[in-house]
Simulated assay, not measured.
Amino acid sequence: MTRQPTAPSATPAWIWLPAGFGALLLVVPLVATVVDVPWADLPELLTSDASRQALSLSLRTALGSTALCIALGTPMGWVLARTHLPAQRLIRTVVLLPMVLPPVVSGMALLAAFGRNSLLGGALEGFGIRIGFTTVAVVLAQMFVSLPFMVLGVEGALRTQGVDHERTAATLGAGPGRVLTRVTLPLIAPALRSASVLCFARALGEFGATITFAGSFPGITRTLPLEVYLVRESDMDAAIALSLLLLVVAGVIVAATHAQPRRPV
């Protein structure tokens, strides 16, 4: 006798109250931001020199840090998922630590490593290479806080995928490099795309580590989140307009992350 699938249980009536309250706490501030936007002055506010510089810098540095996250995070995720290292749990904890560190602490850690008075930073200064309080520092700060998202996404996708396809390709004569490029990476491509988008979003919104490690110099290190923070002291309308811009970009990123391609029926 064929067993019939169990019907989903009914939703308890009381659960709608906390769910609705939580939704309101998320939606109301966003709606309030849109309502407060000075729509008549919006084009002028968004096209000012400071706004354009900050937006351009944010996009360029976020793209650069995302590229670094892909180049470094993909191998790191592969190593954590496919190898057995001594103290692997400790290594994974250290790799993922920037996800939970306060951003300003991440900035202080980068400053301690690459600042002018640090051991490594001082050695680089001797070769004429300065990192702290430059555009490079912005990229490093964004990468430091974004990289765990790529590592976690790749490792999770590889563990979920298993190794059956890779073993099959290996038994057919494919070398490790060919298996990686022709089998493994195509299989986890959706996870790679999602992780890349999340890295870009995290980098675009980074504030604490950036201002601590890179400072706030117009056209050099002042990204859009920093511009919003500084402008709000003198021009709240401009700050709201720039916040709306970041809100729209974040919305597009979230939508792209969760968009699923339609499969033919």
Rank of each mutant, 00 (worst) to 15 (best):
P148S: 02
T47K: 04
V228W: 01
V105R: 06
A32L: 10
S58M: 03
T33M: 12
T181L: 15
G156R: 00
T184N: 11
L25P: 06
I253S: 01
T212W: 07
V145W: 02
R82Q: 11
L204A: 09
S51A: 15
A169P: 08
L192G: 05
L226S: 10
T168E: 08
A239Y: 07
L124K: 11
F127W: 15
V105G: 08
F200D: 00
P225G: 10
V139L: 12
L230K: 05
L247F: 15
V151L: 03
L25S: 07
T184A: 13
G153C: 00
S118M: 10
A71R: 06
L45E: 06
D36W: 07
V100E: 07
L80A: 08
Q53K: 11
M143Y: 13
V138E: 03
Q88C: 11
G126Y: 08
Q88A: 14
L192K: 00
L72K: 10
V79C: 04
L245I: 08
A259F: 12
A189V: 09
L230A: 14
R60K: 14
F217V: 15
Q161R: 12
V37Q: 07
M150R: 00
R222A: 03
L90M: 13
A255N: 06
G173F: 10
V252E: 01
L204V: 05
Q161E: 12
S51Q: 14
T2K: 14
P29M: 07
G132K: 11
A141M: 03
A189R: 15
S146I: 00
T83L: 13
P225T: 05
I15E: 11
F213L: 04
A203V: 06
L80P: 04
T223N: 02
L85D: 08
A239D: 08
R82L: 04
A7Y: 08
V31A: 13
T6G: 12
L224R: 06
R60D: 12
S65R: 04
E227G: 01
P18I: 04
L140A: 08
P218W: 09
L85Y: 11
S51I: 10
A259H: 13
P186I: 14
V249P: 01
P38I: 03
G175C: 06
G77T: 10
A13Y: 10
D41G: 02
L80T: 08
R60N: 11
A50R: 15
P176R: 11
G156F: 00
I129E: 01
T134N: 12
V94R: 06
A201C: 00
C69H: 05
V154N: 03
V37S: 08
E44R: 15
G153H: 00
T160V: 09
